[in-house]
């Protein structure tokens, strides 16, 4: 088991390294934006470019880039202080890593809220549909899920924004500032709610569909019949046997949804003006700030890889019967 986990993690890093190298080379081949622009400390930019080795061959630059990422204790800082360069077109002369560190909580909090809302609703709806299989309740839920899954998430965002923000004015149009509200305060939650809601629809529908499929498969199992035969009531049999078994594939899926959603909220962040990672990424592309673009590309790649890995490995941790890596 441990050996398998280590092997998978190593493989993941190899994959990451290959992708990172390709992206680095491709981004470096792009024409460099002009260092001279208003409001920019040109000396700092040139100094930084020199330090990042912009005049050296690309592979040397790549080595310097990695060296700067694994930056322990130099620059007078304690511990790990990775250096991804500085903003040249946006957040000018600020450390890329610091800006990302500052934006990341917004994205995480929005996703956390949406998962917290979506998981109970999705799973409960799925259980309900599975228990009422082939009756009208099931057909209703399944049809609704079918429709909700198909519609792109930005359409929900438009609907939510139009009806809940413009028409009724129940929710503010912008996210509360961090100076006035902490992340887990009520004001922040209310201001993020439209975005959270728009993200929820898809997650609820996917979870519901998955739960329904898993649970209705489990419900046909022989051991459930046995449980009933030995005298358990239907509810007992479902909660003690069916649900526990159905949860084995559902929990990894929830994990995957959470990690995956981090990279999936690009468009939602744009619509609701959430100052998160997605917005940063889009702006970095529009303004051609390659330092940000590079760092965020690495980030998204890593997120995708970690999500896959965590989902695969979690099966083994959740269900002791599954032997990871067994031939």
């Amino acid at each position: 088991m441990l050996k398998y986990v280590i092997k998978r993690i190593l493989l993941m890093f190899v994959t990451f390294f290959i992708i990172a190298t390709m992206c680095f080379v491709l981004i470096k081949l792009l024409p460099l934006p002009n260092a001279k622009a208003q409001g920019r400390d040109i000396n700092l930019v040139l100094e930084k470019r020199k330090q990042m080795g912009y005049d050296k061959p690309i592979l040397t630059q790549y080595a310097i880039y990695w060296k700067n990422i694994f930056n322990f204790g130099s620059n007078g800082s304690k511990g790990w202080s990775p250096d991804f360069g500085i903003g040249e077109q946006m957040y000018i002369s600020q450390s890329v890593f610091d800006v990302i560190k500052e934006k990341l909580p917004y994205t995480i909090v929005v996703n956390l809220y949406s998962i917290l809302i979506a998981v109970p609703i999705g799973v409960l709806l799925g259980i309900y549909a599975a228990l009422r299989k082939n009756r009208w309740q099931d057909h209703f839920v399944s049809t609704a899920v079918m429709l909700v899954v198909s519609v792109p998430s930005y359409v929900y965002a438009f609907l939510v924004q139009y009806f809940l923000c413009f028409k009724t004015g129940w929710f503010p149009l912008t996210v509360a500032s961090r100076e006035t509200a902490t992340f887990f305060s009520w004001v922040m939650f209310v201001s993020m709610f439209p975005a959270v809601l728009s993200l929820c629809f898809g997650t609820i529908a996917r979870l519901c569909r998955f739960t329904r499929a898993e649970l209705s498969e489990v419900l046909t199992g022989d051991y459930l019949l046995l449980a009933r035969t030995k005298g358990l009531t239907k509810n007992q049999a479902i909660t003690r046997h069916a649900l526990r078994n159905a949860m084995v594939p559902i929990l990894p899926m929830i994990l995957g949804e959470f990690i995956g959603i981090l990279s999936g909220s690009l468009i939602i962040e744009g619509i609701f003006g959430i100052p998160g990672i997605g917005k940063l990424y889009i702006t970095s592309i529009q303004l051609r700030d390659y330092n940000f673009f590079m760092a965020l590309t690495f980030f998204y790649t890593l997120i995708g890889l970690v999500a896959n890995l965590v989902v695969d490995l979690s099966y083994g941790f959740i269900d002791p019967r599954i032997k990871m890596g067994a031939k």
């Binding site: 994959t15 290959i18 992708i19 390709m22 992206c23 491709l26 981004i27 081949l29 792009l30 990279s263 690009l266 990424y281 592309i285 051609r288 673009f293 590309t297 998204y300 790649t301 995708g304 890889l305 896959n308």
Partner: peptide, 17 residues
């Protein structure tokens, strides 16, 4: 390896180049 590259990154790089 190809499949692990986020699509958005691929699309962006192709657009830029």
């Amino acid at each position: 390896v190809l499949g692990e590259i986020p699509f958005i990154v691929v699309a962006t790089l192709f657009q830029m180049h």
